[in-house]
Amino acid sequence: MGRMRGLEIPLTQTQKIRLQRALQKLESLSSKANSNASVTVADSIPVNYDDGFLKGHGTSELNGEVIATVCGVVERVNKLVYVRTLRARYKPEVGDIVVGRVIEVAPKRWRIDINFSQDAVLMLSSMNLPDGIQRRRTAVDELNMRSIFEENDVVCAEVRGFHHDGLQLQARSQKYGKLERGQLLSIPPYLVKRRKQHFHYIEEYGIDLILGCNGFIWVGEHAEPKDDMVIDEQANKSDQILKPSKYSMTLEEQERAYTPLETRQNVCRTANAIRVLSTLGFSVTIEIIMDTVTMSMSLKEIHEMLGSEFCVLVAEREAERRSSAKKKG
């Protein structure tokens, strides 16, 4: 086996052997389940021609043969044959929860980078107004757009669908909106599985975790779901936090803007856990993240999580977890 992609940590000889052993274990576990399903560009995919079949994404036809147009894993659903890509950019599906970064405030809309081949659009009309009243958006609302989201803000939204050749988002609930006091991580989207729950509040550590389907992950201090009525007031306050003028803030406001050290450490711990998992190429789910965070408690410093020893430990742990899951199932 060659050098592992993305892994640029110097390993000692024993660590190298341990890591290799763990990865070999992973290989032996999964190769039984899904052998020979991997294809590369222009490989022919065996299909049952008598039975009829549907060509899905990542396939095309050449001389009556179905061939792959991307590298990935062949998936079959009834008659449909398609290639599931790894390492591709995010492909939106309606209802996906995504995290993105505002790159432009345009008339009546924000342009948001969500790791797709185009920028997504969040219309002013497809999000709740700060005052919580349902009404037509006025010119004043349009002028105040920057008080809701500015350039470079991190936001959370839901995929609404394709309209007018563009990808539209919506944020019609209190759980969506601007994300503050935390970290944005970007990992390959194939590592995030679509699930019922993408918002997680980890009470133990006082943090929020949003696993965006697009591979953008938010780890931040827990924010209470805000009451519709007081939002306006709070939005004004967060404005002041953005342009810090310490003296203009009341004590109460300063306290609200302050994140305790412990919470900040927990945010970093969780973020580092996700970083380790994604460099190893393991799928990132809430259970695995929390397990990795618990493992990291034995370390003295949080930054040691990005060192080689912890990386090897995580790999060994993953191998163990998968083999025990295999035995059970």
Binding site: L26, S30, S38, T40, V41, L86, L191, G281
Partner: peptide
Amino acid sequence: IREVLLENTKQLEYHRGV
């Protein structure tokens, strides 16, 4: 190139798990 691509795809899939 085909060998390299196939090996790479397999590795990614193995690591990701089910």
